[in-house]
Every structure is written in C-alpha cells, then in structure tokens.
Design a protein around this nucleic acid. Sequence first.
RNA 1: GUGGCUAUAGCUCAGCAGGUUAGAGCGCUGGAUUGUGGUUCCAGAGGUCGCCGGUUCAAAUCCGGUUAGCCACCCCA
Length: 454
Amino acid sequence: MGKVNASIPKGTRDFGPQEVYKRQYIIRTLREVFERFGFQPIETPAMEQLSTLTGKYGDEGDKLLFRILNSGDFLRKADAQALAEKDSQALSPSISEKGLRYDLTIPFARYVVMNQHAITLPFRRYQIQPVWRADRPQKGRYREFYQCDVDIVGTGSLLCEAELIQIYQQAFSALQLPVNILINNRKILEGLAEVIGAKDQFNALVVALDKLDKIGWEKVIEEMERNGIDRSKAEQLQQIIENSGNDLSALREALAGSAAGLKGIDEIETIFSYLNDDEKAGASFTLTLARGLDYYTGTIFEVKAKDAQMGSIGGGGRYDDLTGVFGLKEVSGVGVSFGLDRIYDVLEEKGLYPETAAQGTQVLFVNFDSEGEAAAFGYCRELRAAGFRAEVYPESAKMKKQMKYADANQIPFVILIGSEERQQGVVTLKDMATGDQSTLSLSAVIQHLQEHLA
RNA sequence: GUGGCUAUAGCUCAGCAGGUUAGAGCGCUGGAUUGUGGUUCCAGAGGUCGCCGGUUCAAAUCCGGUUAGCCACCCCA
C-alpha cells in the first residue's frame, strides 16, 4: 500500500486530550443545567433519510446538506436522463437517499413523530451531538460541530420560553461567560410587515432587518429595495423602529393595526412577567433580531458573548407546527441551542477555563527495574482503588525521560520506588510543582493526596 | 457559490531586487548529571522550500496552473 498524506477533511478537526477535557467541561456544565430543569437526553443517528432533511432549511440549507452516496452499484439505478445531461441536482435523488443531519431540531421532530407511543407530552429533551454543514469554513464556522439542544414539545405555554431564558443564564453563568440574550417574536416582525404593507416580502424584510446593527439603515433599505420592498415602505419601517426602539408600549401603538403584532407583544410581556429582576436584566427585547430559519413562528432567541469576536453562540425559538410535515399536527415546541464549538472558542479566547477542567493522571509511578515495576504496579492498583488517577511508566526508561513525561503531561505527583524504598516498605512521593519530596507509607501517601488534590 | 491572503524542519516563522552549503526559536535525541522534570550549558538528528509546468546560464525567490489552509461575503452554531 502506498503512503497516503495524513489529513482530515476541510472544516473538521482532531481534538487532543487538553481540548477534549475542556469540551467535556462545557458539556458537563450544560448537562447539569439541562437536567436541573428536568430535560431528558436522547440521541439520534448521524444520518437521516434525505427526505427528512430536504426542504426544511430553505434553499440555502439544502445546498449545505452533506449527501451520502448510495452503496453498491448506484449508477445502475441512477436517473439516466439526469446522468446524461450531467445535471447534478436532478441526479442527486436517484443516487443519494441519506444525508448527515444539519441540526438537531428536525431530527427531534422526526423522533417525536416516530415515538409518539413512547413519549408523554409535554416532552422535554436535550441532545448533545454533532451536526454537519457543507459550508465554507472560517473563523467560528466548521463543517462538523456540536449542538447542544433543549426543547419542550407539546405545549404552547410561555413558561417554557421563560425557562429557556433561565437555562441560558444559568449555563453561561456557570461557565463564567458574560453574554447578551436577545429576544424577539416573529409575530411582531409579521406585524411590522403588515403595518407597512409588505406582507408578501416578509422574508426579505426579516433578512435585511437582521443586518441593521452591522450595515446601518441606508444599506438595509437598499437591500430591501433590491428584494422588492418599496423604498417608501422601508423608510416607514425605519420610522417605526426608530420611534419605538425596543420600547414595547410605543411599539404597541405602532402595531395597533396588526392582530399578529399585538399578539407578539403580549407574548413578550408575558414571558418577561415570569422573570425576576435579575433575569429580566440579563435578557433584552431586540426588535431587529430576526433569525432566518423558516419554521419559527413565535419567540426567537439569540445569544452573543460580550466583548468577543464571534457570531452567535446560541439561538432558538418557538415553532408552532414543527411536526406537521411528518404528519403530527398541532404540536407546538420551543427550544434553544448552544453552539459548543463557538463557546469553546470564546472561552479559549478569554481564558475562562477553570483549572479543574483538566482530568489527567494525578500520580505517575516511576519505573526503575523489574522488581520496582512489580511493586509500583501493586501500589498503583491500590491508588486507583482509592479513587486516584494513577499510572505506571510502562518501561524502565531513564529517570530523566520519565520525569519529563510527568512534566509534559502535567502530572502533579510522582512516586519513586527504588531498592531503598522497597527494603523499608515505603515510597518516595514527589510534588512536581514544588519539587518537595517525602518518604511515606502508602497509606500516608493516600492521605497526602487526598489533602492536596481537588 | 463569490472574493482576498498564505504555503520553507515535527511546530511557529525568517530568507525572496534570482547566484555556491536554505536559517532562527521552540520541540526532539544524546551529553554535562548511571535515583529526579520544569531553569542553565554543550553536541546532534531533521528540509525533493505544497504539487505541476514555464522564463533563465542559474528559481525557495519571477510567471502560469493546480491543490490545500486561513480570512471575508452569503448564510449560520
């Protein structure tokens, strides 16, 4: 076999031990919060039927789906005409029936429909798994990344929205990461479109408005015009938004002509009424927040880390009829997602990992010779039984090499058992941070470690 | 899908008005120190300069192509 270049696909990454420890720390923290709120874990397959995935994320989303080539002699069953014309898009359905999941929400909707018999609504689930998007990678954007989703389906209660805000706050508080939580309601945006008479260009309006912070009113209006919204209507929208800002009562007057808009305002007010003062302070109604995904129908959320060069690290919203496309009507759901990889990047950038995030070996036994090795192996067994993470260096290499190994792996304690120690039935314990050494019995070692390791 | 930048040792990079033998720091190996790492000193190994082609007496250096990575746009976690 020829030598192949060692590489991994664009937009994917290997994670070394230190990185995995940190990722596990984030996941552990999130899971604790999720479970505190009564959410239950599920997992779904990496691949789904392509029919489950297509058409759910808009045209853009469909392009970003990773498709899995059928096994076997797939060309024999391929659409002959599409193949002859080299029409990839038309050919695709006949040679690819499966795809990698694009998010966790659609697979969850599919799960709910398929497992109706086994779950009791309302159902609270969390799910921490990778998703894949055939995007062009860049900072904070990967082709394989983890989402950590919490959703409640089977109730339209706005208590759920309030809980999700609490979950965001408690999770990021536990991670010691300051964030802004932005909240809006799709119905309010619909109300705006209705009031200015641009109901038919709702999507264009929302996509353009979402960029307001970034590009300013002039460019937003230009983009709206490009997408068929009259300039006068766009300017009317600007007027409304500048007048009311994020003030709900002012907005209520402006949207007086829209039933949907007023309902949206009612919903936001109800949600805030459930929150205490601290919680209210950490979440802000943001009229220009407009998440693109087509299925949101009510509240929408987005989370951004404060003072960080990173897009959103979380988002979500309510979808009144998510399971409808799979044949289960009138099941409302609301949920939010945490972007693990982006949270990781921000914590890394800000140096916010606690020292306890690492979970490496705590004690290394130096290997002197075959007799010492056997003694070390036995002591190591006892330390492990006592709950410590311990290992014996597997061969009697030079002491310098073994010490370097302990150093490189940030192992805080080293135990030496040479002939002298063996004769006296003791071991030498070295604290790598201070360099201090002491000769102790194993039970004294255990006591010492219990006092000095977290 | 569109645009910009980059590619030299295991890693981070220098070298590039073309010119003999391609360098540094870190890391690695050995030694100073045959029971002591992280500091210090000495020595050593390690490169078809991403790949293909062109210009030239001569290319890591200039030109074209190609591949890969990064960044931005679109969109998003």
